[in-house]
Simulated scan of single mutants.
Amino acid sequence: MPYWFAPASTEKKPEGSPYTSTMVDWKLLSYIQENDEAQRTDGMCPESLSNLFVFDHWDGRYRYFTVALEDGLSPSDKPPAFVQRRRHMEDIMNYCLSLSKNSRPRFLSNL
């Protein structure tokens, strides 16, 4: 994602404001700067996972914008038919994981 993208503010701005800086959600940018990443917690509400930008730490090619929660799917289910084909299609967890052949089992055993 290019560095010049910034989240737009949802607050109503005065008509005809000449300052583009008033269109940026500065509170959100400040939160992102202070929190390098959001950590998953056991009590986390599943709906809080929609409307996010997520990416693979190990392979920057895989970047996603989450749109909605697919009820009824778990990491051990087969990937949905509409997703792009990849090497590891046995379950959603393996589909989303880009680690090497040797690192993959070690990572999965620590979950």
Rank of each mutant, 00 (worst) to 15 (best):
94 N>I: 05
57 H>A: 13
52 L>E: 01
76 S>Q: 13
45 C>N: 11
109 S>I: 10
20 T>F: 15
14 P>Y: 03
36 D>M: 02
14 P>H: 01
4 W>E: 09
84 Q>I: 01
89 M>G: 12
63 R>P: 01
74 S>N: 09
20 T>W: 15
98 S>E: 09
90 E>D: 13
9 S>A: 12
67 V>L: 13
47 E>T: 14
73 L>C: 06
101 K>P: 01
95 Y>P: 08
27 K>A: 12
103 S>T: 08
39 Q>E: 09
17 S>G: 01
87 R>Y: 06
58 W>Y: 04
72 G>K: 05
102 N>C: 11
13 K>I: 14
66 T>R: 06
85 R>W: 08
94 N>L: 14
71 D>S: 08
91 D>I: 08
58 W>P: 00
53 F>N: 04
2 P>G: 12
53 F>L: 14
64 Y>G: 02
15 E>C: 05
35 N>R: 05
63 R>S: 03
40 R>W: 13
61 R>F: 04
12 K>R: 12
72 G>Q: 07
103 S>I: 00
46 P>S: 01
13 K>W: 02
66 T>V: 10
63 R>M: 01
57 H>P: 14
107 F>Q: 11
101 K>S: 02
104 R>P: 06
111 L>F: 12
94 N>T: 08
58 W>N: 04
54 V>M: 15
17 S>A: 14
50 S>I: 00
103 S>L: 12
42 D>G: 03
46 P>Q: 04
100 S>W: 01
41 T>Q: 00
57 H>K: 10
84 Q>A: 10
77 D>M: 06
88 H>D: 08
6 A>R: 15
26 W>D: 04
28 L>T: 13
32 I>C: 13
25 D>L: 03
68 A>L: 02
9 S>Q: 09
33 Q>C: 00
71 D>V: 02
87 R>V: 03
55 F>R: 06
94 N>Y: 01
1 M>Q: 07
51 N>R: 11
31 Y>W: 10
